[in-house]
Design a protein around this nucleic acid. Structure first.
Lengths: 354, 354
DNA sequence: CTGTTAGCGCGTTCAA
DNA sequence: TTGAACGCGCTAACAG
């Protein structure tokens, strides 16, 4: 840097000012400086910068462990976050969420390596959030906890997503709709999406004026098979199923197929909080409500950076609904239209998960 | 740090030495120092450390863009790499591979932020590798280029993987086996796995003494459908198919189903360089040759760190074969056994991709 | 085994 | 507008 300064016939500090726009520099000298940097192949040293300015321009992502979902959208979250960070001049480091011990998080945060963190897979009452709040460390969430007062987050609009899906199915003539959620343990742990969809499903069926039944299900094909069988047995009037459990889908399809039912003429299936990638893995291609990964992760990063750079801006938040994409797994239920004899009535209830 | 030193009645440097084990420190004073650190809640500052030692203990991962595969294994690569890095006391930052302009890579490398990089999705002649070599920047590869002289890498053992798969099918009695690779353009770009599996397939069928036919196919269900149809039409004796194209699988299955063939009794399917997650998405569950993600990414990281920390160690490399897991999509071909009239013979050839 | 001290490369306050 | 000097928090010679 000193070499650059000499070569441009200015003081070392002037180079710094030119670099950071932290003080007016005459256009002429600025040109000279940049030319000198070019010629010498000078690159500002990130660490030295960080030390002096106390801002590393590095943010961390507490990434999810790839168990629940298929891993498809999770990857996109990570890559999109890295892209967005870079577009804003930040680097993105990955911190495994296995850092379950919050003390480890504290340790990392206080190392001064990162300016802030983005927390994924937030639970309603999340130790990590409590800790970050306590030590007053900047963060944003993809997802959200229960008490979001003063917090920045980007989350899925589960209410809208569920309403749109249920209304769509009701509009096709379905009178009884099931919701196959993720696992009971996720619910008990207060994992946001599971808790919220559970509530919003109940709300949506009430609004749509149809019968509804919901069940938890661990994320695996065989559990999907078992739970679907139970649902179909105990609830003969069922003609449509909504699920947020991607890994259970093959089992669901199998249970339907074994009854010699055809999708979508005999039974409709919608996967919510899913993706086109998932949809096209099945035959027929599934109707899905696609999670807007790119937007969510972009928002998560931007919300954090905003907080980092603004003086006293109120942390913002955004809700992004999933987008319903109708494909081949939904339609009117021809089976029921034919069997116009008995009108099935089922009480909204609960079936134990597999 | 000075406070810690005072509180422990030692010099500032002694604290440093105790922290880095860079010089013997008597057990007694070491205890005093750590106690003082504890009491003061002292955390060494990462950036200052990096500045002084010229080693940031940060490594970068040039991650893949999630187009080719399903995204399942890719996520595991990233998370496992982050875990392994952390276990070795390193941080892992993500650098988007869209950094196609090698100049941008040079810029990042020379910022001094990271000590080394791990390159994924390496092509046989990869600009990034050439650049890193040229500027003498430490790196390792997951995958490998053509000239690996003096380079550290962890890659799939395609030869073993393909031999095992073909031998397994031949052992079941299959006489004509197809290989559905990824896209022609990936091959033309010299993407390692595509080029290597293509060659190893030819080698393996020769060794096994069976007929073989191979074809490229873009990564999507409908192209999988089209290519499979072409293969089945032009090659009536075909009873088994190997693919490395996960996204094409639904199309492959559909083409088979439309012929009223049942898997595995009428036709066998193996997906190589895949995973259990993929396998269980289909009915019947697929026989796959699973990529050993955890091991590969661990090796990739460790190889780099070894290089970073060792004095003059020769860069090492490792090949890891995929592991064949037999599930429901493979077996003897009953269809051919029944139609014992005509013995189909087909010349090994090439079918244009969809 | 321990203490002293000079930087690492840059941001930023002060004086000019 | 510009230049000089100080310090960020730590490592690593060098000296005891």
């Amino acid at each position: 840097m000193l070499d650059v300064a000499k070569r441009a016939n200015v003081a070392l500090s002037t180079v710094s000012y030119a670099l950071n726009n932290t003080r007016p520099v005459s256009e002429e000298t600025r040109q000279r400086i940049f030319k000198a940097m070019e010629e010498l192949g000078y690159r500002p040293h990130a660490m030295a910068r960080g030390l002096a300015s106390k801002r590393s321009r590095i943010i961390a992502l507490l990434f999810p462990n790839p168990e629940r979902g298929l891993g498809i959208t999770e990857l996109e979250f990570v890559t999109n976050a890295a892209d967005t960070a870079r577009e804003n001049g930040y680097n993105l480091v990955l911190w495994p969420s296995e850092m379950h011990d919050p003390e480890e998080l504290r340790l990392f945060a206080q190392q001064g390596l990162v300016d802030g963190v983005i927390v994924m897979e937030v639970r309603l009452n999340d130790e990590r959030i409590n800790l970050l709040r306590e030590i007053d460390f900047p963060f944003s969430m993809i997802g959200r906890c229960a008490d979001t007062d003063g917090l920045g987050y980007a989350d899925i609009d589960f209410k809208h997503t569920m309403l749109e899906t249920v209304n769509y199915l009701a509009g096709l003539g379905h009178k009884t709709i099931a919701f196959l959620n993720q696992s009971q343990s996720a619910f008990d742990n207060g994992y946001g999406p599971v808790v919220r969809t559970e509530a919003e499903f109940k709300h949506a069926i009430r609004v749509a004026g149809v019968e509804g039944i919901s069940s938890f299900c661990r994320p695996a094909p065989h559990t999907g098979y078992e739970v679907t069988n139970k649902l179909l047995t105990e609830c003969p009037g069922l003609t449509a199923l909504i699920t947020m459990n991607e890994r259970a889908v093959p089992g669901i399809m199998q249970a339907i197929a074994e009854r010699d039912w055809h999708v979508p003429d005999d039974f409709s299936l919608v996967v919510i909080v899913s993706s086109a990638r998932m949809a096209e893995m099945m035959t027929p291609a599934l109707t899905t409500s696609d999670i807007q990964v790119a937007e969510l992760s972009r928002l998560g990063v931007e919300l954090l950076i905003q907080q980092l750079e603004a003086e006293e801006h109120e942390p913002l938040h955004e809700l992004v609904a999933c987008k319903l994409v109708v494909r081949g797994s939904t339609g009117p239920c021809l089976r029921v239209l034919k069997e116009s004899s008995s009108t099935p009535v089922v009480a909204g209830g609960k079936i134990p998960e597999a």
